[in-house]
Amino acid sequence: MRDKVTIRLFRGNANGGTETDYEVTTFPGMVVLDAIHQIQGTQDSTVACRWNCKAAKCGSCSAEINGRPRLMCKSHVEDFADSNGLIRVHPLKTFPLIKDLVTDVSINYRTAEKIPPLTVSEDIPRPFKMQQIDVERIQEFRKCIECFLCQDVCHVLRDHNRKDGYFGPRFMIKIAALSMHPLDTGNRLRQLKEEGGIGYCNITKCCEEVCPEHIHLTDNGIIPLKERVADYYYDPLKILIRKIVGPKKK
């Protein structure tokens, strides 16, 4: 392992910025977040970044390392330094920049507010009884640490800036977790199709590739949801039945 690496760090704010090189001293197991902290502590105390757990559990330290969205606390310096010992660290591109590595991710919190919470009928006996096998698939979605790396990489939001049209992959699986909850009685398909904009997703699976929690966003979440939406809205037989007996759950 080399003794020193160079962090080529984006410094700037909404009005623009430049890359600045910082040389940092390495130690075994050092992650990119350690390097940023070293810069703050010894070279420039104004460098802005977010972090909390330093254990890949809170989803705060998202950044683009050598052009790919990652958690800084999970990215070992030695894995990312190129042959010249250089690592490029930039903020998430999809969200407006506040300063250096800190972006304005508030849109995600606004989207979350639009999703109705779990609704369980009063008639269901308490305490709830659910089998492990029935909750396992939603537990996968509930592993999400809201790092928003998937939101960052999704081309609908990143390249086409359709934040007004598509909730984004994180919120597709949030809805999936509710919709597949054994006791939920809410109808979530209309929201998925309309303001949620599930139709925008063309299953490129980029979101799945960057998820640090290894959630199968598309295979286990978005694709089954798309099928449910298609069934509900486009299956002529079901539409007919609904017309006769009224809408049913999901």
Partner: peptide, 20 residues
């Protein structure tokens, strides 16, 4: 803890379907 289930928490289950 039970109230959390009402709010949407999904705990691991026992074979009887209760919170493990």
């Amino acid at each position: 803890v039970r109230e959390l289930e009402e709010y949407g928490a999904v705990f691991d289950r026992t074979p009887d379907g209760l919170i493990s």
